[in-house]
Design a protein around this nucleic acid. Structure first.
Lengths: 262, 262
DNA sequence: GTCGGACAATATGCATGCATAAATGGGATA
DNA sequence: TATCCCATTTATGCATGCATATTGTCCGAC
């Protein structure tokens, strides 16, 4: 344990903070789980994590509690936590939940009748996205740029809704594995039709901005919900060939036995 | 601390379980906060809670983490947790989020085309509710029965959606203070027009069941969302006279400064 | 009288000890 | 060889010690 302590102290010395050990444990556990190092269904042994992560059991416990909130682990029947397995339906539902809540956010944003100044960042973001998807073929860097701008678009959408409560709910929903706005996007970077998916999604961004600008709440809501369903399509495509999915972090968490809903 | 230990041991002897101390701390903290004993904005001192609740700091810490997920407390800027204050807009948004997600659940339930057997519990629940609201005047016991059946209705709705992910999301949303399906119902027990509110809500239950039975997804979704807005109306009425609200558990958490949205 | 600073008291985050419960493995028996 | 039971090992949940950060307070100076 001296070694552990020394290691912890070393890292702490590099960058100490108030909740640093918990953050380290949380991030480390996340990586271990998504990398498939801890297979789904397996109990997460705290002492083992202490050895692996170099932090004591207390932060490990807290991190597990937070990962349970994220959905990566669930409380085991007889104490402790087990790595959660996801069915295709779970993933689809997670996306649907996010889409539904983003629809709410879009409606609220439209109903608030934001000013031009309020909309400026979103407008700029859409313009940037237009430029990114414009070229006939896209590079890896272009996909990275898209992911970044796409994330910003969704953050702005939430901000325009002007509700901390809604923001929290969407944050929760997006934290679910594979439910985030940019999940699976990278998967199509190498695909020939990958660009088309982005073009369609970007058109939806444009329409969504238009609806919010005009105060069309119902239209904005429907557009946002439908926009999330491009992720549904990406999910379906990803499930079509398991090989590619396995390469993705977290791919091993999938249990494909159960049928998919959408 | 001997006294504390003895107390804890005593209670543990009464009913020991795996996470008993955490549950006790969580429940105790919830009560203290909702009773206004810990005013909003105040840091929740762990040692003080140790003395009050008779459990050590570890379960208190865990309970605070879970209450943070529930939204009753938020992480403080410099460690620890502070009791959260709610604006009227926060409450309205919480209800709207729940209504939106219940709309999703209702749509999924309708789209699954449940069998008559699947719908039997919900049908029976609606019939029971019909009987409860039938009398021209309602007693306290009638309101209690309504609350119980209403909770069951919403549970059944979630069950019929057939999605654990959606169920989790709705559970989260309903756990937000005052956002649950039965929030504010009791407040109107003494009001002359209290029964009418229940009659309207029950009519919505009936229509919702009808829509799900017929597989009308969009109608079910709209009805569920609108159904949650009766809670919005109750909230508005409750805010109208602060006096009654203060008597309610959690009333002291309200900060009425900010304007309400809906 | 008010502002500032230092000191004291207190809280937090992390690590760890300890008792009990659960899991694992081995051995014996059918 | 398969199965069941028991012992050992391990993990969990709770309590508590400790170092550091933070807060509150009191006193002095301006």
């Amino acid at each position: 344990m001296t070694a552990r302590t020394v290691m912890a102290r070393t890292v702490t010395a590099e960058e100490d903070g108030r909740g640093m050990q918990v953050a380290r444990a949380q991030q480390g556990l996340r990586e271990l789980i998504l990398a498939g190092d801890l297979p789904p269904g397996k109990r997460v042994s705290e002492p083992a994590m202490v050895d692996r992560l170099g932090v004591s059991r207390t932060p490990v416990r807290l991190a597990l509690e937070r990962l349970a909130r994220e959905g990566l682990v669930t409380p085991g029947a007889s104490g402790g936590f087990v790595v959660r397995a996801f069915t295709a339906a779970d993933l689809a539902d997670g996306i649907e939940v996010r889409g539904t809540l983003e629809g709410l956010a879009a409606r609220l944003a439209a109903e608030r009748r934001p000013t031009a100044a309020d909309l400026a960042p979103l407008r700029a973001c859409v313009a940037d996205l237009d430029r990114v998807v414009a070229p006939p073929t896209l590079s890896e860097a272009d996909f990275d740029a898209y992911v970044r701008l796409n994330a910003f678009f969704h953050e702005e959408l939430v901000r325009l809704a002007g509700s901390g409560v809604v923001a929290r709910a969407i944050e929760q929903a997006s934290a679910q594995p594979f439910a985030g706005p940019s999940a699976f996007v990278r998967l199509h970077a190498t695909e020939p039709a990958g660009r088309d998916t982005l073009v369609v999604a970007q058109e939806q961004h444009r329409l969504l901005l238009d609806a919010i600008t005009r105060g069309q709440g119902a239209r904005a809501e429907a557009l946002a919900a439908e926009h999330a369903r491009v992720a549904q399509r990406r999910l379906g495509a990803a499930l079509a060939d398991r090989d590619r999915l396995d390469g993705l972090p977290g791919g091993s968490l999938l249990r494909l036995a159960a049928g998919k809903r959408a």
